[in-house]
């Protein structure tokens, strides 16, 4: 097991296949660091959800769009950084779906952030120049079910 923090860096085009490529890379990286199955699952799910929002809504599936994903092992936990140059969008302040409303009538993209919030321990957003920068943290050991 590596004793210092290490990082996975990916540059992705805005397409569904690239979302799959990123998820697989994250899966392999975290498995190589000895992450438990449930932790790997939750990180991969967060990656799929955030990238889907950026690809489908931020870039409206324009394959010229570029996304940078960095995964950093920090102790037994992980940090995920997503950087894109789509129009300004803060997923943390976007209106969450009302789970009491029939699912078909809810906001597009809302379900993804519900999952991300439930599975991650920390979330932060910053607009940096012409870029959206979303950071997610997840601890290794969890008391949250």
């Amino acid at each position: 097991m590596p004793s210092q923090a290490s990082q996975l860096e990916l540059e992705l085009r805005a397409s569904r296949d690239e979302v799959a490529r990123a998820t697989e890379a994250v899966r392999l990286y975290c498995a190589a660091h000895g992450a438990a199955e449930e932790l790997i699952h939750d990180l991969c799910l967060a990656v799929d959800e955030v990238l889907a929002n950026i690809v489908l809504h931020g870039y409206a599936a324009d394959p010229a769009g570029r996304i940078e994903l960095r995964v950093t092992a920090e102790g037994s936990g992980y940090k995920l950084d997503f950087i894109d140059r789509a129009p300004p969008f803060n997923p943390l302040t976007a209106t969450p779906p009302d789970l009491a409303v029939p699912p078909e009538e809810r906001t597009i993209g809302g379900l993804g952030m519900v999952l991300v919030r439930a599975l991650m321990d920390g979330l932060a957003y910053a607009r940096e120049g012409d870029a959206n920068h979303l950071t997610l943290h997840r601890e290794g050991a969890r008391s949250k079910g």
Binding site: H41, C44, L45, D48, E49, A52, P103, E104, L111, G112, V114, L115
Partner: peptide
């Protein structure tokens, strides 16, 4: 082994 909200939406449509 893996289900994300994109898949859930397809299942929701099927359910309807």
């Amino acid at each position: 082994r893996f289900l994300s909200s994109a898949g859930i939406r397809v299942l929701m449509t099927a359910r309807k």
